[in-house]
Design a protein around this nucleic acid. Sequence first.
DNA 1: TATGAATGAGGCTTCATTCAT
DNA 2: CATGAATGAAGCCTCATTCAT
Lengths: 205, 205, 205, 205
Amino acid sequence: MSAEQAAPSRIERKRGRRIQEILTAAAELFGERGYAAVSLEDVAERLDVTKGSLYYYFASKDALGTAAIETLGNEWTSRLENLPAAQEGPPAARLRALLREHITIAVREYPAALGLFLVPREWPREQHERIKELRRRHDGLFRRVVEEGVASGEFRVTDVGTALQCMHASMSQAPVWCEGLAGAAVDRAIERLADTLMMLVGQAP
Amino acid sequence: MSAEQAAPSRIERKRGRRIQEILTAAAELFGERGYAAVSLEDVAERLDVTKGSLYYYFASKDALGTAAIETLGNEWTSRLENLPAAQEGPPAARLRALLREHITIAVREYPAALGLFLVPREWPREQHERIKELRRRHDGLFRRVVEEGVASGEFRVTDVGTALQCMHASMSQAPVWCEGLAGAAVDRAIERLADTLMMLVGQAP
Amino acid sequence: MSAEQAAPSRIERKRGRRIQEILTAAAELFGERGYAAVSLEDVAERLDVTKGSLYYYFASKDALGTAAIETLGNEWTSRLENLPAAQEGPPAARLRALLREHITIAVREYPAALGLFLVPREWPREQHERIKELRRRHDGLFRRVVEEGVASGEFRVTDVGTALQCMHASMSQAPVWCEGLAGAAVDRAIERLADTLMMLVGQAP
Amino acid sequence: MSAEQAAPSRIERKRGRRIQEILTAAAELFGERGYAAVSLEDVAERLDVTKGSLYYYFASKDALGTAAIETLGNEWTSRLENLPAAQEGPPAARLRALLREHITIAVREYPAALGLFLVPREWPREQHERIKELRRRHDGLFRRVVEEGVASGEFRVTDVGTALQCMHASMSQAPVWCEGLAGAAVDRAIERLADTLMMLVGQAP
DNA sequence: TATGAATGAGGCTTCATTCAT
DNA sequence: CATGAATGAAGCCTCATTCAT
């Protein structure tokens, strides 16, 4: 037991890195094509290893899927949690910062995520719970700011939950909308989306 | 002969009905689980026939998928096009009517549609174009009203396109949000969502 | 019993004609693509009827195949049997007439036949015997002339059976060789082949 | 490294051997029953593996077919090319050596080949070109000797091409003719066939 | 650790065959 | 007579999974 808590050995660190590589590749692919449409062969090929090797790190495709979703979700949430501009200041500024960062991550780094967060339908049943949990954490970040804004009278909403859901649904689609864009056009699209979503809490453009 | 196309014979009508049955079953399943995760066996089972029979009506799984999407999209769009409350009156009332109807259809009749319209990623390449086309028609309906409202000064938007996309993304997710609800709770959720989306054009609650 | 021997009624004649049509279509297709590669659907389509109808005339695909081969073989053999130029005269002239006629039929009318006569391998086992029988009759025609020529000293062969087999093998391939040719070129190819095969019985060009 | 291409590793050699085993089994079966009539299940069964395993080595049935044909054709042609008796001496002796060897291979080792070389009809379209190419190489061997003999006045032919085609057609059928024979009878049949075919270039028995 | 090989279940598709109308 | 519909077996192919090395 004490060993488990001890600092990871060099070998364990290496294993950890390998796992991260696999997870990244898997998350990308699952995101690009959807869970069902990605084979372990695909994942293995992107990593330039054989299918069999993946089983050394993950017990099954489902396990890999779960881990991939979890990793992605955790990293994403962490980045939002640690975003300086979202820590203090008026709710409007903080919400806008969160929206921009979230959309930017979605569009620039994880065009994948759409499939991971938006469409649980196609994931194995066991993962549904985990995905929901991730969403809750994620949601909490935005919810706190929105509720604070509502409390202080800065924001006006029909319903906090509904507004949050609309924000998430819209942001998740962003990568699809930006698919054909490049360079500064992407930046402008991100701004437009953030501005538009601010309207959901009554912040006119 | 005076009618367009010559009236279909009794047998042709029967065939047409059968095709509709299949299409309905298929659209439901594809919607529930996603295209890739649904096997023809699943579709056949729901219809209580054998897999082979499906091939009497559709040349391939892809063909069935295409037809399912098309039928669904056409019917859906038609209903919106013919919605009385959306024909005349102030843009705000008309937009709200469209939103409510669309959400209601999505939630009550095609919990399926999410997968069909929102995630083209996982559909065979040939269908992408058709899906886009359907979306365009669909989009046009909302766009006209929004643009009219903007022109008349009733609506204020950051960007018409972006606002429309947010509406669609949000409405498509509605079935997921309503999954656990029942009875009047669903109605209230629909109202909340419609109200919230009206804010995207500057209509405060 | 007496009825069975009686002249066929009008209905029976009609049935007979229909059967001939089917047989012709089937023989063509089987010949073009091989037995296994032809579906009853293909046959039905060429006749512009439905698959089911074929079962009114033939109990199974195999039965159709057998009948097709038989019909083709019978007609073919009859034409050779009744060829005037093959009835009398010196063996060399008669053999050459048979060769020319056979090749001409093969090339011009039944490019199909290759599959029927040459490659029994792919036919259902029951048909092998029938095909052999057809071949025997067919062979007999040539054999009589060759043996007569050998007896009279006009022909010289290593072995009658072997010479005959070479003739048949070669003639059956003729349609393949002539595939790209047209018009007079076909005629010349036929002549060349007949001349060449005459050498098998020692008739120098 | 000094060798061409880098020496294959032990594992690569093993893989190569396995592929050869599969190819041999496949060529036999295709030859016996024709391409369309052989299922991968049949091939797998003969090798005592499961169908799926074949896909580890070949991407499709077509690919397997192509490879089988190619392997068979290459080996066959090589053996003829390296036949000592066909290298020098009078054309008649060389041609006869080629004929005997070819027939012997056909009858004793590849009763299969009939289907592979003679009936391209039933092979997938892509393979037609390859089969033709193989036939060309193969043909060239015989053609050179025949043309030499014609040039030197030893041979007399109606037409070189036609004579060659007759030879091939006849030789390809040899396995069928020999099917029921055994022991010395086979040898005699081979001799008879070779002698008979020599008549096609005017070499009386 | 990683790989090559093999497996077996399941998915798509074709097709001979049956049958009610 | 003929058709439309349906079936079920069989064929091709994919892929998650296992395992010896």
